[in-house]
């Protein structure tokens, strides 16, 4: 059996019914199987990222062309890349802890750049990111990984002084706090994950 050919595909379009149907039919018709996908809609624009594996000799160019042709009516912007080795930060390392970093303040240009530049300078990876503007108050919610949870306190102090310099309200709280306050499972399972959680 040939080694599956895996591709990462992103598609952006104005939101409308039928986009995912069009993408998935195209993938299936070429013998591909979707492994994972994530989609979001923001201000009326739809975007999706998915990974699909193909038996045989599918190519990135061939897939790109097919998706562009099939999605012409929907106005797709498509990009396709052959899947490379997993990036360093995608490893599931048991020691690392997820934290939720929130930043709030009066909206002005450059807030995201300031916060993310600081995180980049510390080698901290952003796993998930959400930002919105409510009546002039800008809110960032970032899911980040801290290698050693016991170091979080120092990072918190650094982030708070960054917040004071830039007039932003910053907080860094362990993800388990949010899980505990918003989910139903036994708290002990946050501390000692059971096989049932997988």
């Amino acid at each position: 059996m040939a080694t599956p050919n895996e591709f990462i595909i992103t598609v952006m379009a104005k939101d409308q019914p039928g986009i995912i149907a069009c993408i998935s039919k195209t993938v299936a018709s070429r013998g591909g199987s979707i492994n994972e996908l994530s989609q979001t809609v923001m201000r009326g624009y739809f975007t999706i990222i998915l990974s699909a594996a193909f038996e045989g000799d599918e190519t990135a160019d061939g897939l790109l062309q097919a998706l562009n042709e099939e999605g012409d009516d929907h106005g797709f912007s498509v990009s396709v890349r052959a899947f490379d080795n997993a990036p360093q930060y995608a490893d599931m390392d048991a020691d690392r802890s997820q934290f939720i970093l929130t930043v709030q303040g009066a909206d002005r240009p450059g807030i995201i750049a300031e916060v993310t530049s600081y995180l980049a300078s510390q080698g901290i990876n952003i796993e998930d990111f959400f930002a919105r503007n409510d009546a002039g108050t800008f809110t960032l919610v970032l899911q980040i990984v801290v290698e050693d949870a016991w170091d979080a306190d120092q990072l918190r102090l650094d982030l708070q002084s960054l917040g004071e310099e830039t007039r932003l309200r910053v907080s860094l709280i362990h993800e388990d706090i949010f899980a505990a306050t918003n989910e139903l499972g036994a708290v002990k399972r946050l501390l000692q994950p059971s096989p049932l959680d997988i």
């Binding site: 929130t102 959400f130 919610v141 709280i173 949010f178 899980a179 306050t181 918003n182």
Partner: peptide, 11 residues
Amino acid sequence: MLRTEDILSTL
């Protein structure tokens, strides 16, 4: 999966 509203209400 945590919702942004849940995160902000806990915060």
